[in-house]
Write a protein that binds this DNA or RNA. Structure first.
Lengths: 342, 342
DNA sequence: TATTTTTGTTCAAACGTTGAAACAAATGTA
DNA sequence: TACATTTGTTTCAACGTTTGAACAAAAATA
């Protein structure tokens, strides 16, 4: 109700009998303003409950101090912890973060990009929707000269900074581990191969199998959206094969969970009859019985690096710094679902 | 690299030989501008890839079309789906959403509020951190005349719109259900009673026990932060009582999960020896074995109502509309962890 | 034909902040 | 004492858009 006019630097100036410009400079700690004036301004500012108008300063300075983050979905631990880190780093530098969820939809992603551009964000950090194949909207960001950092789901063709883990190596680690546990026939519940990260996981899986002389069969590799339902459906398919696999490597934890449910419903002993490894190290993997082995992607690090890289880009805009492709080392967390020996 | 000057309405005006003012009016579909001019302006705008500068228009209009949302943590299904809905509703009305996580810390919450106020948001939707007891920062929002909507974690004393579920009734439903399943001694893993919602859940629990003539004992009610660890610790305590409970009602799903783990480690059959009900209906409750009964809070509805209420407030600012306290009906989802009969 | 109304546009100021340039006063240097 | 430098402040224009008032031309009315 008490909705009076907001106080501006002009009001402060009037009280002190100086100009708005002097007040502005005092507030920004300009070296040429006397300490006396500075303390006086600060005092009056507090008295009048002055709140600087970011819109005005942003307009004048051509800098909004807003950063956009586009993610497929916030409700996975992976993405939410990345966001948390990004926020932490950027808030400390005076930036605010606008989060947009694409819900894995290309259309929604485009809308979000437009909204962010309209809001005059100083930079964008994004992980692409599964659906996204056309890169036109990302090109648009680039063409406006707005710094863009991709993480996790990126595209090489775009030629921008990228942070992610080594998906190829991840698969190799998983297979190596499963082989060490005695697995001889390993299936892969894969993500869609048109997405780079999933393609790399498939490549790593194939190459590792080849290296160990294990069978690579198309019926053992099924692509999907990696949701629980997908994991369930594919697992049922796998159980119907003449020759069942003795291990399953899923490119996502939710799919792994679905697979686990089906295994249990079919009285398959995990890991003794069939071993299981997931991907992302979602918290629930350690909570279910048996707990699910998974790949830790170091999401906090990804978030931190993405944010810091963006800051660097914003600060050195136009100064043609070379591109950064940062590939982090994955970590295999071995849990009950794949621990046969001991 | 291609970082040319952005096109402004002035550029469009120059091309057409009219004034910026006319261009602005044309773009805003002003009735006094001729159709000929309007189409011409739209055409040139497209040609020059014109993007309106939101900062300038926001400054001039005194309206940022930005809305702040403060939540404790995005990684629960409950909060992330609320955000999704809020975004959906507000985006459709031309607003962008800034999300801030308090991480359950009062200090972080205050910082976030300051950041949002500085960003000149048109309104704030918030769910308070567990830690928050002092309401000074929320008063600050109100005193600036910025619409504020609370959801889930609110405070009656604040005198603002609120959306949430009927926590008291939820507890009653849970107890009624457990009693129907034959439980005679029901423990409550509670949230801290200084938070209104948890206080109400405790009240509902007590009153229901009284109604059914069941024992109300202090040793059966333990308050905590409701994380997994808390659930585990408290469950161990409960097992050490001379007289063990035969059912546990946890005010949060994570605490319920922790309790379940401890029960299983102690070879307690769930639900036969001990029944279990959680709260929030997090997705994992249906994924673990046995699946955990829980209370569905209709998060999408909460998000939608919160967003719509905010819109109404923004539109009718100062027009003294009466307060809205919207209390939704909870829904008890009965799963294996509490289904004894049949 | 004279007058009013409508239509389409321009003018000018404003939103609140910033920063380069200008300026006066105080201080330092020769 | 004369001049240069430093210090602290003011002046003024700008950022890009919006909006009410003003205005001229065209159309409608008397």
């Amino acid at each position: 109700m008490a909705n009076k006019k907001k106080t501006t630097i002009k009001d402060i100036a009037n009280v002190l009998g100086i100009t708005p410009s002097a007040v502005s400079k005092a507030l920004n700690n300009h070296p040429r303003i006397s300490d006396k004036t500075k303390t006086a301004v600060l005092q009056i500012a507090k008295n009048l409950d002055y709140q600087p108008n970011y819109l005005a300063s942003a307009l004048r300075k051509g800098k909004s101090n807003l950063v956009g983050v586009i993610i497929p979905k916030a409700n996975s631990h992976f993405f939410s912890s990345i966001i948390e880190k990004i926020e932490e780093v950027l808030n400390n530098k005076g930036y605010n973060v606008i989060i947009a969820q694409s819900n894995e939809s290309y259309e929604k992603e485009c809308k979000s990009i437009d909204a962010l551009l309209y809001t005059q964000v100083d930079g964008i950090i994004a992980s692409m929707a599964n659906e996204t194949v056309k890169l036109d909207y990302y090109e648009k960001i680039k063409s406006k000269g707005i710094p863009l950092i991709l993480f996790d789901r990126g595209e090489n063709d775009l030629n921008v900074d990228y942070v992610g883990i080594d998906d190829y190596l991840s698969s190799q680690m998983v297979i190596e581990h499963l082989v060490a546990q005695g697995s001889k026939r390993i299936a892969h519940i894969a993500g869609f191969s048109h997405t780079r990260i999933y393609k790399n996981r498939i490549r790593g899986y194939r190459d590792a199998l080849e290296k160990f002389g294990l069978p690579i069969e198309d019926s053992l590799i099924v692509e999907s959206n990696l949701r629980i339902e997908d994991g369930r459906k594919i697992m049922k398919q796998l159980l119907e094969l003449k020759e069942r696999p003795d291990a399953v490597y899923a490119a996502g934890d939710y799919a792994a969970l679905g697979a686990l449910q089906v295994m249990q419903e079919n009285n398959i002993r995990v890991p003794d009859d069939m071993a299981l490894v997931g991907f992302s190290n979602e918290p629930f993997t350690s909570l279910v019985t048996p707990s699910i082995s998974s790949i830790e992607q170091h999401s906090e690090q990804i978030g931190q690096i993405a944010a810091k890289t963006l800051l660097k880009r914003i600060e050195t805009k136009n100064k043609n710094v070379s591109l950064n492709k940062l590939i982090l080392q994955p970590e295999l967390i071995v849990r009950a679902s794949s621990k046969k020996l001991q």
